[in-house]
């Protein structure tokens, strides 16, 4: 399906109608609150594989949708589990 994004409310629409939003992931291993704060603010997993992310349908329903995408190919994938 690639960069046509399926909106559960509006249907599939071009990526140009959407705004990408990241869902930050801070590793549990970072216990120090200050280090967690810095990691959440700046660091990125930059996943080379399946990423969970949010897209805002700006030109349609104006709501966030959560999707899973393979960052190597830009293909949409089913939520794991």
């Amino acid at each position: 399906m690639s960069l046509r994004i399926r909106c559960p409310h509006c249907g599939p629409r071009s990526v140009e109608e959407w705004v990408h939003g990241e869902i930050p992931v801070v590793p549990d291993a970072i216990a120090d609150p200050d280090a967690r704060d810095v990691d959440r603010g700046y660091m990125h997993t930059n996943e080379h594989g399946v990423v969970r992310e949010a897209w805002f349908h700006l030109s349609g329903c104006r709501r966030w949708v959560t999707l899973w995408r393979d960052s190597r190919t830009d293909e949409w994938v089913e939520p794991p589990g």
Partner: peptide, 19 residues
């Protein structure tokens, strides 16, 4: 528009680049 119009009723999205 890069999306097909609905057969009947409401559709929403960009037309000529405008929501």
């Amino acid at each position: 528009a890069t999306w097909p119009p609905p057969a009947h009723g409401l559709g929403q999205g960009a037309i000529a680049g405008i929501p």
